[in-house]
Nucleic acid binder design. Structure first.
Lengths: 229, 229
DNA sequence: TCAGTATTAGATGTCAGACAACAGTCAACA
DNA sequence: TGTTGACTGTTGTCTGACATCTAATACTGA
């Protein structure tokens, strides 16, 4: 990918190609490291480094003692934005601003393209958040899941992969600043509005509902920031 | 990050922490592999695998014969979306749809937040595309650079990192379907409109100019797809 | 004096082989 | 019956050697 002079890169590329050309499908088991060593004519260290590359870009998955497998759900690298290394000042604000750009449009698309199966999943995702809240549990994980489910309903694979990146950053951010006082009733009402609009197949309403939901979150983050200072 | 039982993961995490805690800043040189081996009490293979992980997530950068350095501009993983493994059918269409969602808003933000330094960079980026076109060269690389420069002018680090992911996918897509007949005059005019609007600090105009630019690209892609079928 | 070329030191890249740790299977034994 | 223990296959880690690249330095010849 980068410097093709390096053997480990070449080998990683080879394996990538194998997968792409469907010689290996998701879930398939790779030949073991010794076999790869033999068939690719490189040392085991090189094979291992290639595998490390593909694992950390989420193409492969290693199960110690068992073997190496093609990831069933590729994409979704751990922290592709380097959020963990980014300047934390205003980070949450920037994340919410990004959501504000994307999610209303995504909700609108979802309203247009939602399938019966999507509807069921959306309802379930909504119910989980609702349960968390009624039991006064932390609902961030299911909250994100709800938003991601909407992204799936937009039926655009690029969007489906990008949104989780942002939302995962948000989740991580919340984890570090636990003391955000979120009005759970508000969240619940917003989610209900969004769900309703999408199930109705009303793009404009979905867009607006999502917009005000995210806007609310953004304003909360900014209030919180002011207090910090 | 994943399985903390693995030494290489632990070591990668250690190095990450060093960087995060500013013991190492962007551009700094890491201790060499032997020194890391000694200070972390692991073998060189383990150190190397840890480094591979961090390189492929773009935290470190290895210059053979010189040393290993902290990436000056982190983020930007190679193919975080797994585009290379995605179903190719309609991929370009989905990529353009994603741009259509994001870039008009980004252009609007840029128009609001553009700094004098940004202005200069935008002009230069525009000029490069213009040069390419007047010399009838392939302008995709500079085209993307122009769009990315706009994203930078929006002064949101999350956006600045996400957009290149999409646009890199587009570049890769073009590379595979060389025969897209793009009206270069059209591209040039669009870019001129967008640049003008941003330099004027007119968000609405910038948004609309960008929208029609991307919309045009999308329609070209869809025309091209129909021909294929 | 100086341009150009070896030499060398420091670093990463690759190889080879050994042993450790883990997961699953199956047979032996209480 | 059910638990233990050995065995097999696999990935994880260690060690040491040599190859190759980069940059700086020393050398050489005009």
């Amino acid at each position: 990918m980068y410097d093709k002079n390096l053997l480990s890169q070449k080998v990683a590329e080879d394996i990538r190609r194998m997968i792409k050309e469907k010689e290996l499908k998701a879930g398939d088991k790779l030949p073991n490291e010794l076999e790869l060593t033999a068939s690719l004519n490189v040392s085991r260290s090189t094979v291992r480094e290639a595998i490390k590359i593909l694992v950390s870009t989420n193409v492969l998955e290693v199960r110690r003692g068992k073997g190496t497998y093609v990831t069933s759900k590729p994409g979704l690298v751990k922290d592709p934005l380097g959020v963990s290394l980014m300047e934390k000042a205003n980070l949450m604000q920037h994340l919410f601003e990004s959501r504000l750009i994307m999610e209303p449009e995504i909700a609108a698309l979802a309203a247009q393209r939602v399938t019966p199966q999507d509807r069921e999943k959306l309802k379930k995702a909504y119910a989980k958040v609702s349960d968390d809240i009624s039991q006064k549990l932390d609902h961030t994980v299911h909250d994100i899941a709800f938003h991601n489910e909407i992204a799936k309903s937009a039926h655009n694979p690029v969007i489906r992969r990008i949104l989780p990146i942002i939302n995962e950053g948000i989740r991580a951010g919340y984890a570090e600043t636990k003391d955000l006082p979120e009005s759970t009733e508000m969240v619940l009402k917003h989610h209900a509005d969004i769900l309703e609009a999408i199930l109705e197949g009303n793009p404009d309403k979905a867009k607006e509902a999502m917009r005000s939901h995210i806007q609310y979150g953004l304003s909360q983050v900014m209030d919180h920031q002011e207090k910090e200072e």
